[in-house]
Simulated assay, not measured.
Amino acid sequence: MNGEFVVERCAFDQALLCDVLAAGITVCDGLIRSVERRPDQGMTVAFEHASGRRQHIHAALLADCRGHTAPKTIPDRLASPALVSLACSFAGARAQPHSTIIESFEAGWAWGGVDPKGQAHVQVVVLPDFLAEHDRDIDVAHAACMRSLSRLPRRFGRALKPTGPVRARGIQPILRGLIAEADWLRIGDAAYTCDPLSGQGVFEAVSAAIAAVPVINTLVRRPLSTDLALRYFDERAESVFRSRVEVARQHYIAETHWQDEPFWSRMSASDSSQETVTPHSSRSYFSARPVVEGGYIVERPIVISAEYPRGVRFIDGVDLARVDELLRNGVPVVPEVISRYILMPHEKIAGALQWLRAHALIRES
């Protein structure tokens, strides 16, 4: 739980590809040249093979998983401050089992990884202003950050020798303005990107793909529920994005040693545009919302509260709305009686009743 694992990225990608092929999926390797929507053919993707040969594929639905480089169609909905990541690989580190370390310093924070062969990788995250202070020379800027570190050099050793140039890329948590339509949806970083300090990475891409499965099922097989499926996908993306942004901000707040420095004060500041949307009422209430059921998106009553703005449907497998319906129809607030209507052990019914009472959703006579 909340752990981090070092893997060989090339081997990881190859393993994913093997799983895809084993599942019977056709893989076309090439560079995408264009994506168009055609009235009679659905979505059309034109791509170019390594040989230069061009090919077209037609599909009823397109899932765009091209990461943060996926072209955007309208302005972004939400965006946090931009940062810069400077990364460099080294040889000569102290040989040790695969491990990672994170360290804060005055101008930002650093992440390092090392392997048993003494190969190390150090990424530092700073404000764009930090580059300007070093004449935008990324090698000089990264070296300056390395001199500010203490824990990481002690772990990796001080005989690190760069094996290549420093690489720079921009970092900015962004929620795209449009992430889904009836024949097209964004998945993973194509929909939203998070601050790496929130520690999601591959998990976020996988969880987004899993959430997309019932949405795609609904769009393709139950077109009358298209609006409901799109609403579910969109609301989930915004909710998760806001949550990840807040997790990262809390990490910045937790580092009090540098709290008055420009980087830390800016990143820990509250952004009104990112504040979590809470229910209009502080009390808990039932509301019909889109949920996953049987591999599709359907609308069901769930409990909305300040604690759970995305809602709660089940407690230990007991459908809260079903319990509420029975109570409204005069069934006594007795677990053994309710379990005759809901085929669940009365101990679980008792747990659901206790939860409903705690949220003031049961009126005792």
Rank of each mutant, 00 (worst) to 15 (best):
L361C: 13
Q123M: 15
R186F: 15
P173T: 06
F241N: 00
S239F: 15
E36Q: 00
S273A: 15
F105E: 03
P81Q: 08
P97G: 03
R283Y: 13
H49T: 04
R155W: 14
G294E: 06
E204I: 07
P345L: 03
R328I: 12
D13A: 06
G351M: 13
D271S: 12
A288C: 10
G3Y: 11
V6Q: 09
C65R: 01
N2K: 10
R186G: 13
V277K: 11
A144N: 09
D135R: 13
V20L: 02
P165A: 15
E4L: 13
H359E: 07
D316F: 10
S104C: 11
Q172A: 15
P97D: 02
V318P: 06
P301I: 05
R94E: 06
A50V: 10
R300T: 13
V206K: 03
A82G: 04
G92F: 02
R53Q: 06
I138G: 03
E48V: 00
L61H: 00
E255T: 09
A229C: 07
P75V: 00
L356E: 06
V7G: 07
H280D: 08
V6M: 14
I210D: 05
A159M: 10
V333Q: 08
R289K: 13
C145E: 05
L230S: 07
R266T: 03
A209T: 02
R357P: 11
E133I: 01
R147E: 09
S273W: 03
I216E: 04
W355H: 11
C65P: 02
Q200T: 06
S99P: 08
A358P: 05
H257C: 12
G113L: 15
T100N: 11
H49G: 05
R289L: 05
C10I: 08
R66S: 13
V337R: 13
A209Q: 02
D260G: 03
S365H: 12
W258S: 04
P332A: 15
Y308M: 11
A50G: 10
F90K: 04
D19M: 12
G52S: 01
L83P: 02
E325P: 06
E307S: 14
A107P: 04
E48N: 00
G199D: 03
V202R: 02
T163G: 14
P279N: 01
S51N: 05
D76V: 10
P71D: 04
L228I: 12
P345R: 01
C65K: 01
G170Q: 11
I101G: 06
I74F: 00
W109C: 12
R310Y: 11
S268D: 01
V292N: 07
A50I: 03
G311T: 06
A95M: 10
T256V: 12
A211Y: 05
A60W: 02
I74H: 03
L160W: 04
V298H: 08
S225L: 09
V206S: 05
R94A: 14
C65T: 01
